[in-house]
């Protein structure tokens, strides 16, 4: 491959006002402006979006799946963080 490929970008789309941007896929573009336009042409052909974020894929840092146990399992026994952990007398409303 003599020629360099256009960089890869991750695309995030807000599908309507009030919602978070959500990852929808990736694409190639030479620069950020083009990445946004390409995202518009590729990922919003059917009214899927009102706002676009693009991030060059190489800038995304991800957690390691091998750390999953250390990262996420310690939350398992902290059930007192959830409202259902607490008993509220029936006569108390709106809590």
């Amino acid at each position: 491959m003599s020629q360099k490929e256009w960089p890869l970008w991750e695309v995030f789309i807000r599908s309507k006002q009030g919602l978070d941007h959500k990852h929808v896929g990736s694409l190639h573009a030479a620069d950020a402006e083009m990445a946004i336009q390409n995202a518009r042409d590729v990922y919003t052909r059917r009214l899927e979006g009102v706002s676009i974020w693009v991030v060059e894929s190489k800038h995304v840092h991800a957690s390691n799946p091998d750390d999953a146990a250390a990262f996420y399992e310690p939350a398992n026994d902290k059930i007192y963080r959830h409202p259902t952990f607490y008993q509220v007398p029936d006569s108390i409303k709106h809590m």
Partner: peptide
């Protein structure tokens, strides 16, 4: 045009496995 889009979605999926689009096209 949708087919171009579908090709693109799929190349993207394959790229998450470490394949480059250039190599796949080659």
């Amino acid at each position: 045009q949708d087919e171009a889009g579908h090709g693109l979605y799929l190349y993207s999926a394959a790229e998450t496995l470490g394949a480059s689009r250039d190599q796949m096209l080659a």
